[in-house]
Amino acid sequence: MTLLQLAGVHTYIGQFHILQGVDMQVEQGGVTVLLGRNGAGKTTTLKSIIGLLAPARGRVTLAGQAINGRPAYEVAQQGIGYVPEDRGVFVDLTVAENLLLAERRKGQLAARKAMLLELFPDLGRFWHQKGGRLSGGQQQMLAVSRALVPENKLLLIDEPSKGLAPIVVEQLAHAFNQLKSYTTIVLVEQNFWLASATGDRYYILDDGLTVHSGNMPDLIRDTELQARYLGVAAKGRAV
């Protein structure tokens, strides 16, 4: 079943025409990786889905329902969790408060706490610390956990590996693979190791257009395609 669909999405930031007709189809379950060079429009695509940017043209549908042009909070309430590139951790809030904020119904965090701690055991130790005191990796775990507090059909995760130590990236890969049975993930990732270790399907964006898509194993084999669109990043096979 198609969970998320983008059809001919055009998005401007100021006067810049960033997305110039993005088409994408994300099936329920699994991890879809969005790849492409810096400035290809990956982050803008996520922002256009969650509603932080309003597409000027095109359609975004979630489970058949149009969500483009709706304010971000309404889109999120449809069941989308968003983890931005800068992680969006509230530095003056404790870990617990950061997570509580994501509740859409009272008691959701309590119901989910055990699962989150199993996924990221570190969180428990920092439960009452301020978000600003956490390391980058811990912040990333908090940000992903926060998207898991409500029952989200879809997670949008923007470059989780950025600036993190290899060991933390491995932990994230493990977590994403575990989450597959629970939700659908759209992952923007420059780190090809993390992309290939977790991805089921891929889309490649270039200059604001979707130029390639397919199953991840095919991309892993196709070094020519990797070199053409992913440049240097693709060479970083292992971390």
Binding site: L52, A72, Y73, P84, P150
Partner: peptide, 8 residues
Amino acid sequence: DMVQTLGI
């Protein structure tokens, strides 16, 4: 903005 994306 981030608060919005949490559905608030």
